[in-house]
Amino acid sequence: MQSGTPTYTRNIDQVNAQERVTKLFSRSIKKESKIVALNTVLSMIDLTTLEGKDSQGKVKQLCYKAAHLHDQFSNLPNVAAICVYPPMVPVAKKALNGTGINVASVATAFPSGMTSLDTKLEEVKTVVAAGADEVDMVISRGKFLQGEYDWVSDEIAKVKEACGEAHLKVILESGELVTLDNVRLASDLAMAAGADFIKTSTGKVSPAATPSVVLIMLEAIRDFYKQTGKKIGMKPAGGVSKAKLAVQYLVMVRETLGQDWLSPDLFRFGASSLANDVIMQIVKQSTGVYQSTNYFSID
């Protein structure tokens, strides 16, 4: 990578990585620490809708929800961003005006990335011009698996350039990279090529974010920081729908990267239904009982 070659292997031992995950996930998060964690999780959510049938109405509802998570509880934070398809960016931008909540748009022929580079760059420029604060691109997994690492790297660098001021999140689609060795290599490539965030998945491929993939990406971020001094963010996406799992990921972040990454500036959850489960847990912590899901808006 750009500043000196690392003097150790990037091979990943899958069995031991899983064992580390098990150990981290067995932390017992209770009482005060749980409430703090749940609120932190809420503030890290990229509230997402990425469906072919998305309507302007749905995006507007989602934006309203982003700023009014559960009005019965006054002290809840807002989510970090709304994540939508490119045509919805102007709608979201308008709806979120004045809330401080970012608009993130997927781009580069999400989710497959199967189009020409020119088309991808054009798309990125369009969403940024429309007001997207953050761009979530996908890497070309076909090229990566072919071993065309320079090609993949160049593409990310060009997208980064096209982003201008907007933050770039690079989606590795770990489910298609299959091995942890590949996940590690792709993470290193993406960070060196200019990613501000690295992100596990599109949510359209199974498996999406898995705990061992997230751990390996966090460790890649740690090594990159050690080598370059740059703090790269992390975003697990897809498959994180329960508060408990989200809190377990916070434990993983805390014990891998520490204080600075326990913030929406450097850690996000890409999720659609996570927010409601977290709110439900917060309400339970204060009232002592679980309430019916009917009391939580489904936008």
Binding site: E32, S33, K34, Y225, L250, R254, E255, G258, Q259, L262
Partner: peptide, 10 residues
Amino acid sequence: LDFNTDWEYS
């Protein structure tokens, strides 16, 4: 890295 985090385990 700063592991002396604001968020502590109860």
